[in-house]
Design a protein around this nucleic acid. Structure first.
Length: 189
DNA sequence: CGATTTTGACCCGCGC
DNA sequence: GCGCGGGTCAAAATCG
């Protein structure tokens, strides 16, 4: 039923937001892993991130180009206004996993190792602060995230991820590379 | 000069 | 059917 109530509910969050919290949104499907656990398994160097992280990052919804169904109909000035899933408008079946972080930070944008490009900002209701929309800059990666400050508690930043990266982050690999090599080395014995 | 941010307009879903 | 709220696009501006 309600799969996206998160942002609205954040106004009356319980008081467990003192530190960083992870609030996974339930997906209508099945999987329980909403976020890659970085310390789960020894990773091979040749990593299939899509399979590893979620099975499929964004099934059939990767087109960023213009091409929406009812687009050219009434619009006068604009002609190419493509929605992400142009034509499909897959109603409720949003299979992309969504994860919300509650973080107490003075910084709005968390440095999670990925490169993000801002594509929009909107003021939202019930909140004094605008919500910013970011997209992963990696070619084939269609992960988005929203960043919003709580109006109640200005020190709390809510970061909502939508989708799963189908590629490793440079920073993550930098950090993990020595460990992986060591694991590989130890794995020989 | 390319990449990124800003910002207003557009579009769509939903509630009334 | 209409208005509102939210998400996205894309041109212009800004930055490195």
């Amino acid at each position: 039923m309600n799969y996206m109530e998160g942002e609205g509910e954040q106004q009356h969050q319980p008081s467990y937001m003192n530190t960083t919290n992870i609030v996974p949104y339930p997906t209508p499907t099945n999987n329980n892993q909403y976020l890659p656990q970085l310390d789960q398994e020894p990773l091979p160097l040749d990593i299939d991130w899509v399979t590893l992280l979620n099975g499929s990052a964004n099934p059939g919804c990767s087109s960023l180009g213009p091409g929406k169904s009812g687009d050219a109909g009434g619009s006068s000035s604009r002609s190419s206004k493509g929605r992400v899933c142009g034509g499909g408008k897959s109603k409720k079946s949003r299979v992309t996993p969504r994860v919300a972080f509650h973080t107490t930070s003075v910084e709005d944008v968390l440095d999670d190792g990925y490169k993000w490009r801002k594509y929009g900002q909107k003021s939202v209701k019930n909140s004094l602060h605008p919500r910013s929309y970011y997209r992963c800059t990696y070619h084939t990666c269609n992960v988005k995230k929203q960043i919003q400050r709580l109006s109640k508690d200005t020190s709390v930043v809510v970061t909502t991820y939508e989708g799963v990266h189908n590629h490793p982050s440079e920073k993550l690999m930098e950090t993990l590379a020595p460990l992986l090599k060591q694991l590989q080395f130890l794995g020989r014995f």
